[in-house]
Structure formats: C-alpha cells, structure tokens
C-alpha cells in the first residue's frame, strides 16, 4: 500500500488513478498510426486506379483513334485509305511509322515524305497508348478488314449533292443546341464559335469553326472527323455520346454554308459579357447597400467628429 504524502497533489493522485484503471489508454492516446495507415490506403486507391487506355479492344481503338483520318476501303480522308496497306509497305516500316510518325519524316524517309505531301502537309499525330504491340494488332485488324467486301471502317457516306436551306437550318439548330443531340452530347456552341452566332457568340474553349470546312478540306473529311472526333477533349466526351449520321450531315451542311459565306474568325472575348456582368455586380453592391442601409457604422467616430 502506498504511503500518503502531502506533497503529492490531488492532480498527481488523479493521474495515478487514471493509469491504474486504464482510463489513460482510452482518453489520451491519439490514434495517429492508425490514421496514417488509413491515409496511405486511401492514397494508394488514387494511385492504383489511375486509368490507362491500354485495355481497350483493337476495333474500338481503331474507331476512336484512326477513323477520323482513315478509312479501310472508303477512300482517302486526311490520311490514306488503309485497305491493303501491308501490301504497300512491310510490317516493320509500318510499325515504326505508326508509333512515331514524325520520326521517319524528320529522318527524311522518302515514302513518309511523299505521304506528308499527299496529306497536304498534315503530319499524323502521335497517338497516346499506341506502342509496337498495339500497332501490330491494328495492322492485323486492317488486313482482316481489307479482304472484306465492305469493311466496318469504310466510313460515312455523305452526299455529293448541294445541301438545301432546310439542311443548313437544321445544322444551325444542332450547332446552337436548339435541336438537342440525340445521344445527349453537349451542343457545339458550348465550346465553339462560328461567325454568324448572335451577340455573345459561341464558346471559346475549342477552336473557332467558321472556316473549319476549308481546314478539313471538304465534306468527306469533316464528316469522318465528326464520326469520331479525335482531339484530346472531344474524344472522351463524344466517345460516350457519339453524333448520329443525321446530325453529322446537318452540321456539315451548316459549316459548309458558313465557310462559303466567308466570315472571319474571331478570338476576342465578349466585351458585352464583361460589361453586363460588371453592371450586374454594381447593381448588386447598390442592392446590399440599400438592404443594410441602417447597418451599425460606429459609435465613437461620429461622437469624436461632432466635437472636433
């Protein structure tokens, strides 16, 4: 039994008691190591699930990455028709070119340079996730598709006849969103400007599309491009919600019409948007000032002011 000492404060007695009944272990131990453990587990979830595009099927991969510039048996778009491509060049060369198109052009390869000329100077971009194994799988797929009478990658058939006014009007409605996209995609206006779109214009996240018809060298390329948009931001958005062929036809009609009308591109932000926003903010300030017009301002300052 412990001897009583008047020097031991009541506080010390309390702490001894707390230790004896095991309360200390409950109340004072912060669960730091466990917290860190949970943090590590949560963090590793984030790291482990970083998505790679590697697991996709070859066909889907071709559709998403190649079809905006190539067909198999549908004729030339920006890039060449890939039907029987393996008969034109050997496998090794093709794999090297596909995995690093600019490399062979920079190295002065005669065939690669000729292809660049045929594409009017457009160089095939380096496709993310396209390594040698993927390239070999794609070439095998192209060979299989080449012997078919009509490949699934023959591309979209778009009319050569002139579009009429109703096609153009429908295209404009699709562009602005008045006619919602069938598969739920965002309207073109969300990100793109075209010269004949009203006071505030179209979006400016993506490029101005006033002259896109000319840049894409006509209907066929533009339509194929819209079938599987290949730019970094549009690809994931429209992969999930593709445009229908009717919508593509309308958009091509509209963009062709706009380009032929000859408007100029416009990259300046809307001054009107800023000024009206500023006016709104000023109105807001006036509003809060009047709502709280009887707000407490001061006691001492006015008193001092009266005297001085």
């Amino acid at each position: 039994m412990k001897e009583f000492s008047p020097l031991r404060s009541r506080r010390a007695v309390f702490f001894t008691w707390r230790k004896q009944v095991g309360l200390e272990a409950i109340t004072s131990s912060r669960p730091r190591p466990r917290v860190m453990g949970w943090a590590m587990i949560l963090l590793s979830f984030g790291v482990l699930h970083v998505e790679t595009a590697m697991g996709q099927e070859t066909e889907a991969y071709f559709r998403q990455n190649c079809m905006s510039c190539h067909t198999v048996g549908g004729g030339r778009l920006v890039g060449p028709d890939l039907k029987n491509v393996s008969k034109r060049k050997d496998q090794e060369w093709l794999i090297e070119f596909v995995t690093n198109p600019k490399g062979l052009i920079d190295a002065g390869d005669a065939y690669a340079l000729a292809m660049k000329d045929a594409a009017r100077g457009v160089i095939m971009p380096k496709i993310p996730g396209l390594d040698k194994a993927k390239a070999a799988a794609l070439l095998e797929l192209i060979s299989r598709e080449s012997v078919l009478e009509k490949s699934q990658f023959a591309g979209l058939h778009i009319t050569d006849e002139p579009f009429d006014a109703s096609d153009i009007a429908r295209g404009r409605d699709i562009f602005t969103g008045s006619l919602p996209l069938e598969n739920g995609g965002a309207s073109c206006l969300s990100c793109h400007h075209v010269t004949d779109i009203g006071l505030f214009g179209g979006g400016k996240l993506g490029p101005d599309l006033t002259r896109v018809y000319e840049r894409m060298l006509g209907r066929k390329n533009l339509a194929s491009w819209l079938l599987s948009p290949a730019t970094a931001t549009m690809r994931p958005v429209f992969q999930a919600k593709p445009l229908t062929s009717d919508e593509i036809e309308g958009l091509v009609a509209y963009l062709e019409d706009v380009a032929k009308a000859g408007g100029a591109e416009d990259a300046t932000p809307s001054l009107m948007l800023f000024l009206l926003g500023l006016a709104g903010a000023v109105l807001g300030l006036m509003l809060v000032d009047s709502i709280w017009s009887y707000r407490f301002r001061a006691v001492r300052r006015p008193l001092v002011g009266e005297i001085v």
């Binding site: 309207s187 009206l276 709104g280 903010a281 300030l285």
Partner: peptide
C-alpha cells in the same frame, strides 16, 4: 445542358454567373 439548349437561357445563366463572379472579386 438542357437548360442551356436555348441560347437565350445559356446567355442568361452565363451573365448571372459573370455578375456574381465579379461581385465576388
């Protein structure tokens, strides 16, 4: 997105957002 399907509604929403953003700033 369906609210913004009409360009007028889109502009209305964006103007409100711009006014509020400048008010905040």
């Amino acid at each position: 997105l369906s609210w913004n399907a009409s360009p007028i509604r889109l502009i209305l929403l964006e103007l409100t957002g711009m006014a509020l953003a400048l008010f905040t700033l």
